[in-house]
Amino acid sequence: MAQEDVAPIRVGLLGAGTVGSQTARLLVEQKDELAARIGRPIELTGVACLDPSETDPFPWIDKSVVTTDTMSVATNADIVVELIGGTGVARKFVLAAIESGASVVTANKALLAKYGPEIYAAAEAKGVDIYFEASVGGAIPFLKPLRESLVGDKVTSMLGIVNGTTNYILDEMTTKGLDFDDVLKDAQAKGYAEADPTGDIEGYDAANKTAIMA
């Protein structure tokens, strides 16, 4: 077998917060199963965060790969997972990763809604992939069936509640007759809504997802 066939797939992780730390855990704890599925070993070679101490509660993250040099992680991997959020520095690092020849995985709906065409074009020009299933629907397979299974169909409309917070609020209001303000406070207390729920209840999250689906 050629050496390149058995070389590990290098994964760089941008962001080590709630989602990033658990992504790292899955990559480390399930590396054997992932290797069996992929046909090559997979290795977490870099974790970028503003403060390396953020990773202290996560023993599965090897301290030797943690760095504040985000650009270095973004440009020295085969696959870059962007979990920084926002549209500013995230765009810079995603484009840098693509330019370096890496494929990118992101759940950053705001980034894709605003800069999607630019990012898709950059990936196509470099011959790399950009995957973003989790940007709409979380773990619910939606974008892949839309792009592949329904490729021969003409989609005329899409209807649904695509925001988890508003889904919970609307359900509680409909089934229990509760007031919006009361349900929102309950959702925040249970962790279903952010401390600042503006992005959800004002429709920005749904708008971003709609732009991606379109």
Rank of each mutant, 00 (worst) to 15 (best):
residue 18 T to P: 01
residue 166 T to C: 02
residue 165 T to L: 01
residue 20 G to H: 04
residue 177 G to K: 04
residue 106 T to M: 06
residue 114 K to Q: 14
residue 1 M to Q: 14
residue 103 S to T: 12
residue 96 A to E: 08
residue 126 K to D: 05
residue 51 D to T: 03
residue 40 R to S: 10
residue 165 T to P: 02
residue 144 K to D: 13
residue 67 T to F: 03
residue 169 I to G: 00
residue 10 R to P: 06
residue 110 A to R: 08
residue 101 G to L: 03
residue 200 D to C: 13
residue 54 E to V: 15
residue 95 L to P: 00
residue 104 V to L: 08
residue 137 G to C: 12
residue 112 L to F: 10
residue 147 R to Y: 14
residue 4 E to C: 10
residue 108 N to C: 06
residue 173 M to G: 00
residue 40 R to T: 09
residue 154 K to R: 15
residue 30 Q to C: 11
residue 139 A to Q: 14
residue 139 A to R: 15
residue 92 K to R: 13
residue 99 E to K: 04
residue 54 E to F: 10
residue 79 I to W: 14
residue 27 L to W: 13
residue 53 S to V: 09
residue 212 I to R: 06
residue 110 A to K: 10
residue 176 K to V: 00
residue 54 E to C: 13
residue 55 T to S: 07
residue 60 W to G: 07
residue 154 K to C: 11
residue 160 G to M: 04
residue 130 I to D: 06
residue 118 E to D: 12
residue 201 I to W: 07
residue 132 F to N: 11
residue 212 I to E: 02
residue 209 K to E: 14
residue 48 A to N: 07
residue 190 K to Y: 09
residue 185 K to N: 08
residue 185 K to M: 05
residue 19 V to D: 00
residue 40 R to E: 06
residue 93 F to H: 15
residue 135 S to D: 03
residue 112 L to S: 08
residue 161 I to D: 10
residue 100 S to E: 05
residue 212 I to A: 05
residue 27 L to H: 10
